[in-house]
Simulated scan of single mutants.
Amino acid sequence: HRQKKDTMAEENLTYVKEFILLGFSDLPNLQGFLFGIFFVIYISILIGNGLLIVITKTDPALHIPMYFFLGNFSFLEICYTSVTMPRMLADLWTQKRTISLLACAVQTCFLYIFGVAECFLLTVMAYDRYVAITKPLYYTLIMNHKVCVQLVVTSWLTGIPVLIGQTYRIFSLNFCGPNKINHIFCDAPPLFPLACTDTYKIEVSVHVVALLFVTVPFVLILASYIKIITTIMKLPSTSGRSKAFSTCSSHLMVVCFFYGSGSIVYLQPKSSQSSRSRKMLALFYTTVTPMFNPLIYSLRNKDVIAALRKLLPK
């Protein structure tokens, strides 16, 4: 009888069929206000990045590698935000907040795939600037269309097998008892405390993968910029220097935004993070960066402004 009881308890334990995403439920009076703000942010991300995609495709003056990568990056930003934002808006609107285990796994997986693709694409963009500034005579030869397409495809696909494997491992854990995720979307760090099995090994592997896919691109970006800056400093004319700096500065700003907030979330020890600060940082790299990306690139770029003027009636 006791054995039967134990197996029944075990059966009750093993299956959490759905989670509750707490999101901003600790601010009950601000639900409508938050919905309004995030709705405006999401629409502006779609419009801003959508416009960048359109002009990089339609304007012949922008048919160069730098803008080919920028168009792809904008598309990636739209995909990346669309993994979390519509769900978050629906939760704020309906107050339901439940998400099935499968939907949670799918969201986590796509979030990682797009996030890693973004890291690699930012690296490719840094490499493009590096070739343009350090080897200007060979630029069109090195960065031909075929190479550009290969670099973009590689950025998109490299992490997929590893990240699907990681997601599978995370969601193979036994979740029992508490099913409230204290976060705005499904992600590994807030999920681990809900598991009833030992998560140490998987947590280590998540950190290792994050280190690998975040740090390696970051080191490559850093190396590219060290080379770029040393080359720029050797340029004889100040106008040449400022032009070279201005083509790199927008990319550098996006890198700092995205990497700064993302690395704090994934590489910081759990104990030093409150759930509220984790939510704020997550919002930063999933919504604020994609919103500012079109602004950073268009306001600091004469070619983009010219293309926008052609596209939009004065």
Rank of each mutant, 00 (worst) to 15 (best):
A195G: 00
G32Q: 13
L311I: 05
T238H: 11
I229T: 10
H183M: 02
C104K: 09
L212I: 07
N72H: 02
K4Q: 13
M66C: 00
H1F: 14
Q273K: 12
M8C: 08
L299C: 12
A9I: 05
I221P: 07
T98P: 02
P65L: 08
C256H: 00
L76Q: 08
F258N: 01
A9W: 05
G177M: 05
I228V: 13
L283S: 07
I41D: 04
T58Q: 07
A195M: 03
Q273W: 07
L212H: 04
R129D: 03
Q268N: 03
T123S: 15
I264H: 08
G36R: 12
P178M: 04
T94E: 12
I64G: 09
Q166P: 01
F213E: 11
F257H: 04
G159I: 09
L283Q: 03
Y259N: 12
V54C: 15
L281S: 01
K17P: 10
I37R: 02
R129P: 04
V206E: 11
P65N: 12
I55Y: 07
L220K: 07
V216Y: 13
S242N: 14
S246I: 10
Q166K: 00
V254K: 05
I184G: 06
N12T: 05
S100F: 03
L194A: 04
Y259S: 01
R129I: 13
I20A: 05
R300E: 03
P193Y: 01
S249V: 10
I226M: 15
L220M: 14
H183C: 11
T158S: 12
L252G: 15
A132E: 13
P269T: 10
Y285Q: 02
T289R: 01
Y67I: 08
C248H: 09
V16E: 14
K279G: 03
L76N: 03
L102W: 00
P60H: 00
I55A: 00
R276P: 01
V152R: 00
I232Y: 05
K17D: 15
S242I: 13
T94R: 13
T108F: 13
R97T: 06
A307V: 06
I264E: 01
K279D: 00
V147Q: 02
Q273F: 09
F258V: 06
L52Y: 02
P189R: 01
S272N: 08
Y67T: 09
M66T: 10
R2E: 14
F73P: 06
I181C: 08
G177F: 03
S237Y: 11
V265Q: 04
K17I: 03
P193R: 06
T158Y: 03
V147Y: 07
T230S: 12
I184Q: 02
M233E: 10
R309D: 02
L46H: 10
F258W: 11
G262H: 04
L34A: 06
D187E: 07
N12Y: 12
E118P: 03
R241L: 07
I133S: 11
F38N: 10
Y112N: 14
K314C: 07
A126S: 15
G23M: 01
S239Q: 12
I221N: 09
Y80G: 06
Y127C: 09
I45D: 04
H183D: 08
L92S: 11
I184C: 05
L308P: 02
T215A: 15
C256N: 03
V106G: 01
N179D: 05
I181S: 00
